[in-house]
Design a protein around this nucleic acid. Structure first.
Ligand SMILES: [Zn+2]
Ligand SMILES: [Zn+2]
Ligand SMILES: [Zn+2]
Ligand SMILES: [Zn+2]
Lengths: 163, 163
DNA sequence: CTGGAAATGTTATAATGTACCAAATTTCCC
DNA sequence: GGGAAATTTGGTACATTATAACATTTCCAG
């Protein structure tokens, strides 16, 4: 069997976080955007795992750390991070996840495991092309694509076989 | 220019509604499911237009008609209609729309106009195939696909050109 | 009939997201 | 550096969407 994608297997996740934060700093510097402490901390919290995190989960962490935070605090930080392509919102879950392809121009495709909750973000050119083609055939000008696939990740499939 | 899809041009919309209700009755009869008056009325309200309707919009209509309705009334009806493939939930809008392909086994792809709000539901085999292929390449078992494309419909594109 | 299943009524509350205005901070020009 | 403008943050209140829980009614098979 081919090697599985990161979210589906044990790995040094701290490296994911470190890399994501480093990328974020570089991207913000390049765009002259201010990655303030709260924004950076929210991004780090979002990256705590490969599972999407709800805005109010982020809020709870912030307040637990003694930070003066209210819902707008979190939503503002999340808006900023989305604008700069650092996090994605998963509409079907009302939750947020770190972008695995920050800086690259891409259309996210999310594989969401309903069992373990992990999410893998893909860029599938074939899929994007097919979507654009279908939209074009209807003379529809596509601006934003939401593509979220719920199901079972490789790990959870094999676990359910061994129950 | 090719003929535009229904939502984007004037048409006898009452025929859409009548057809949808007739289909729904047939489907429920075939599945031994009870399309009760409230459920049927909710479906009819959802079909009032080709724009998605929020659950609380449906609720407002029901109560305006003097029906004894509360949020669970609407959500239960919507759950039923979704289960039987008669309506879809648009996750990116928190709203519901009548299924344009009820009875057919399909994966909905929704073209959502950010200007006029109309939604066109497509079935694009090429897109579905590409998505399944991409999921399979990651050994992911896809069960449910959310595919929503926001942009500008043909009509709204030409209107903005003539401003 | 009648007993169990399905559907509905009803109240309360959870979960998610935004409007709005004031205060603080940063930026940038002079 | 001083000070106006813009950005960011603090904080309250509220809007919107969705569900939990339990009582009551309706339906239907036997
Ligand atoms: Zn990781
Ligand atoms: Zn999983
Ligand atoms: Zn119509
Ligand atoms: Zn339009």
């Amino acid at each position: 069997m081919a090697s599985q994608a990161l979210p589906y297997r044990p790995h040094n996740h701290q490296a994911c976080v470190t890399q994501a934060l480093a990328d974020a700093r570089a991207i913000c510097r390049a765009q002259n955007a201010r990655l303030t402490p709260t924004r950076e901390r929210v991004l780090e919290l979002i990256w705590q795992s490969h599972k999407p995190l709800g805005a109010y989960d982020v809020l709870a962490e912030l307040t637990a750390e003694g930070q003066n935070a209210a819902p707008p605090t979190v939503y503002r930080a999340l808006d900023f991070l989305q604008q700069h392509g650092l996090v994605h919102r998963i509409a079907s879950l009302n939750a947020f996840i770190g972008c695995a392809h920050a800086g690259e121009n891409h259309t996210g495709m999310f594989l969401i495991c309903r069992s373990c909750g992990n999410v893998l973000e893909l860029t599938a050119p074939g899929v994007s092309g097919a979507i654009e083609g279908a939209a074009k055939a209807e003379h529809f000008k596509a601006e934003n694509v939401t593509l979220e696939i719920a199901g079972l990740c490789p790990r959870c499939q094999s676990e359910s076989r061994h129950d």
